[in-house]
Structures are given as C-alpha cells and as structure tokens.
Simulated scan of single mutants.
Amino acid sequence: MSDDLEPIAPREAVDMWIDRLQSTRADETLKSYRYRLKPFLEWCEKEGIDNLNDLTSRDVFRFDSTRRADGLKVSTLNNQIGTLKQFIQFCERIDAVEQGLPVKVEVPPVELADRVNDELLPAERAEAIREKLHRYERASRRQAMFELLWHTGCRLGGLRALDLGDCFFDESDLERLRHQDDIDSEALEAVELPFVYFRHRETTPLKNKREGERPVAIDQEVADRIQDYIDVNRVERVDPDDRRPLFTTEKGDRPRVSKSSIRREIYIMTQPCQWGGCPHGRDTTNCEALKHGREARCPSSRSPHPIRTGSITHMRDEGWPPEVVAERVNATPEVIREHYDHPDPIRRMQSRREFLTEDSE
C-alpha cells in the first residue's frame, strides 16, 4: 500500500461518490448505482476489506469471479462491473486506491443482442393505437399522453414534468419565452410552431437534469389532439409550487398525475383486447390482466419505455441521423445506436436510398 493513500471505508467512499454525482445525475440513476454496488460492499464486508487502500486488482478479479459464479446474465454483470470501475476511478482521484487500479478492471463485453431490449412497440402497432384512441377516446388524457410519448420519444418522467405552460401551439404562447434569460429572443422570430418544452424543475426532475431541457417540435395534428384534451377533459388544478400540470388528476391532494398512474394507463392502452379480441386466447370476462393493478400481466401490454424505444427506432427507420434523434430524445448518438436502434433492414435500406437520392440532387 502506498504511503500517499488516505484510508477510507468502502461504504463511506460510495456515499462520497454518490454525493458528488448529485448535481449531474437523476435520483433514479443514483439509486441504480447504489444497487449495482451493493454486492461489492457486501463482498468487502465478507472478505474483511474495511479500507479501500488495501484493494488490489486481484481482489476485483475475485469479486468478478464470484458474481459470474452466481449465474448473472452477461448484461447484468457488465452493468455491475462497469459501475464498479467508475467508482474505482473516483477512488483513484481521491487517493483511496492505488494509482492505475481502474485500468486493470476489465468490464465484461456484451454482445449487441444481449444489450438491447426487444420489447419495443412497432410503428404499425403504435399507429393502430393512435387510430383507436382517436376514434374511441378522442380528447382523453390517454390520447394526449400517447401522442406525446410516441412523437417525442420522451421518458415517463419528462411526460409527467410537462406543465400547461410548456405547450407552445400558437404565437401568443411565445410571449412566455421572450423574457427568459436562457432564450435568444431573436431566435424566437423565426421559430416554427408547434412544440413542447421539456424543463427540469426541482419537484419534477428530468433524468439528465438541466442538460435534459429541450424544446421538441411536434406535428400540428399532434398539437391539435393535445389541445382537444386541454379544452375538453383536462381538469384545471394547481400544484403546491403554483404550477399548472399538463396532466392532472381529478381528486386527491396531488394535482399532477403520478408516474405509476401514467405507467398503468400505458399498460391499458397497449392491451390488444381494448380494441378487439385477445390474441392470446384468454377469456376477457375473467382475464387477470384486466383487473386493477395487474394490467402488466398481459403478454402484449407495454410500459412507457418500449414506446420510447419504438419511437426512436421509427425515427431512425425514417432516415433521421442518430445525432438528430439524440438531441430530440435527450440521449447520446452512441446510446441511440447501442440501446435503441432496432432497425427494420428493408426500411433502413429504403431510407438510405432516399438519403442518397436527396444528396445527389
């Protein structure tokens, strides 16, 4: 052990690292980091490692071997060791571990097929749901939610964070932006409507906080359907921060719809039997997935994330460059390619053909 190191217990170092990340990471991300490091902390206690100064590359190798022996999926092991490596890099910076230790930590490689989530919502199914919602639940909260999720590719937290004042559908709405310090007033002169503006606020944080803030253009048809909901079925309520949520509740002390409620609504509207027969041969008179709180038990139901995945894939199939999609949905181009890009080979070929045709004109 080097004399330059400063003694620190594993749990204390993890707390210090998480605290350091508070200003740049969402709460859910920090929770996932703690969860991934929990097995390492338990292993350190079992092995009697109470000072990270004593941690060696051989120790990390033994921990890795232990986790492999537990039968973890490669993707799970990749996440845990990858997070551990980030943590050890922080420990190196604060003189808690030997210099050069992070370089010796090998993160298990993962094949693309093991990294991606195939439970995306295909574009054809999304359009079918849009059509049914417009026919049978026009101007409903569900319709407005689905329109925004599909067309913006936003996360559940971003959808919930929207206020009524974050919708910019006509010229009068732009006045709300003209006096904000972070807005270029000259740019507003040429801005095209409609769009929604995702904002990070203390009580409704975005995943990437301030870096997640962005205006996102939407089609006029989408804006019209959201406006129908606002005009007809939105319940006017003000939350404790004197904000007017876009998606409100009718009763209770929480004016803004909860994440669990949004998730449940998505499960319901992606159940095929809502619009026709059951493709799984179930009896819809007593199917458990039709009971309150059990909607996710339908094999065809989807949570908000597969809608985001399907939306991003659809944008790519339509020929949108990864960099453009990344800005729209608040992700990096690398993440788009690795986790969300599930190409239909024929459509992707056609989009490349159209891109080449346009480029040659």
Rank of each mutant, 00 (worst) to 15 (best):
R25W: 00
R243M: 04
F168V: 09
K251Y: 13
E361H: 10
F90Y: 15
E111Y: 05
L246P: 10
L206F: 07
G48F: 11
K46M: 15
G276N: 07
Y229D: 03
D118Q: 08
L159D: 09
I94H: 06
A26C: 07
E6C: 03
E127P: 00
D59P: 06
N233S: 12
E186Q: 13
P194A: 10
D50G: 12
V105L: 10
R256C: 03
E111F: 06
S57F: 02
E334F: 04
E236R: 13
W17D: 00
K104F: 02
C298W: 10
R67A: 05
A144E: 09
D64T: 04
S172I: 06
P345E: 14
L112F: 08
E127F: 09
I81C: 02
E202W: 00
N286P: 00
L290E: 02
E171I: 09
P272I: 07
Q227D: 11
L356K: 13
R308S: 03
T284W: 01
R316H: 06
V116A: 10
V60D: 03
G158A: 05
D173G: 04
D344R: 03
P333T: 02
G281F: 10
S351T: 12
L41M: 14
A144R: 12
V107R: 08
S303K: 00
D228R: 13
R68F: 00
R234P: 08
L246A: 09
F168S: 09
F195I: 08
V191M: 07
F61N: 11
K207H: 00
E361D: 12
S303N: 04
F168H: 14
E98L: 12
P194Y: 10
Q180G: 01
R297G: 08
V216C: 13
H134N: 12
I8L: 12
T309Q: 07
A96P: 04
H200G: 01
